[in-house]
Design a protein around this nucleic acid. Structure first.
Lengths: 226, 226
DNA sequence: CAAGGCAATATTTTCGAAAATCTATGTTTA
DNA sequence: TAAACATAGATTTTCGAAAATATTGCCTTG
């Protein structure tokens, strides 16, 4: 893997996880030392992150971590509903046995990790958070991967990352994951998907995202200007 | 404007217009001379174009112009239907007077240019093509700009560019724009939008994109493997 | 004659310095 | 005192060379 790719992954994670908070100026010299690489890989990483909308860049004035706001969160959530619901519908229509197997596997991997993590003391370590995060992503991606549209999958990826920026900071110090997350919504969703009930599945997915949004809106509260 | 930004615009246009054909290897040294800038701005431009899916990059093996295929074209078209129809619906619901005025203005600007261009000899000059292209983009963007979702607008932009890659090569040497393009579909669409008939407008938009797709599929014919 | 390895070439990736640009501070002047 | 200008500092942008890596062609060897 090239240095630029490594830098991209690291900065991306630091932004999602909140180590680099919203609106933080990203001085090139500083990042160069922090990640131990030269200017070029850093610049390349920052450029890629810009099209992920994780950093913003004004010409000749440098990069900063993209701001967050309740409005942007809801924009991302609603856009995600639109795109993933359509992708899920197509997956359910076109998905074969291998796809079903992948969904089941991803679900169980997520649940296993979620349960083991729920027994750990807070705050969770960076490694545990990352592992949980990866499996959560894998599950949601497995649902829609049968849609046979690279564009929709790309868009879903971008929106997933964006929404994680809001979900994540609340995960680290949160009490053990509430039953809502572990048992109910994900399982019901998977069952409905496997039953090939597209209407109900998309409705569940939409409700899942929106309820998460409402909870986060509560938690953000006065912080929405951050 | 920075050199990187200029390089980005130029390479982007050269790919859309077909001057740099699909699968063409993009040697850095070569591009450096072609656009008269150093390595860094070129690399930055190429990186941005990669996330637009106009170029592909395999690590340590360089950049190439992204391939095209009928399958990819239809993926882009159908994704565009999904996203723009939803955005159009929201525009129609939320758009104010200023939005309506913008739609009307963009439509007339497009028609004016289309009519003047239709009287010009073929093949059209690069400048005329660019001007027509800009107004076509402006019209379609005006329709959905009232949707109040930056994410949907971003996605629509990406898909617009992608579909232009297929439409454009047929424009340069084509006979004067057929009546279908000039008079009928765009005007009917605008009228319906201004009448705030969301159901009919989205159906027209969908039909507009799909019929374009069918025509292009015909024209591509055996070239789909290119 | 084919297959594997080695050297030569081509290309990308990375780096550090130089140039260009912006921001902040202090000085002068009306 | 306030506004305008000039200077100094900080930061980004750009460049060209050096390092790292892949590809190609040739030679050796079985």
């Amino acid at each position: 893997m090239t240095l630029a790719e490594q830098a991209y992954q690291k900065v991306r994670w630091d932004i999602i996880s909140g180590a680099l908070p919203p609106n933080q100026p990203l001085r090139l010299e500083q990042l160069k030392q922090r990640y131990g690489v030269g200017f070029s890989p850093i610049r390349e990483a920052l450029n890629r992150l810009q099209s992920d909308r994780l950093v913003v860049n004004v010409a000749l004035k440098g990069f900063t971590v993209a701001p967050i706001s309740a409005a942007d969160m809801w924009d991302a959530i609603e856009s995600r509903c639109l795109i993933e619901c359509d992708a899920l519908r197509r997956s359910i229509e076109k998905g074969d046995d291998a796809w079903e197997a992948q969904v089941v596997a991803a679900y169980h991997a997520l649940m296993l990790k979620a349960k083991s993590v729920s027994r750990l003391p807070r705050p969770l370590s960076e490694a545990e958070l990352r592992a949980l995060e990866d499996r959560h992503y894998a599950f949601h991606r497995a649902l829609i991967i049968g849609c046979q549209s690279q564009w929709l999958l790309d868009f879903a990826d971008k929106l997933y990352v964006e929404t994680e920026r809001y979900r994540f900071p609340n995960l680290r110090d949160a009490a053990p994951l509430p039953d809502r997350d572990i048992g109910n919504e994900h399982q019901t969703l998977m069952t409905t998907v496997l039953a090939r009930d597209a209407d109900k599945a998309t409705e569940l997915l939409r409700a899942h995202y929106r309820s998460t949004g409402h909870i986060l809106t509560e938690l953000m509260g006065p912080l929405t200007t951050a």
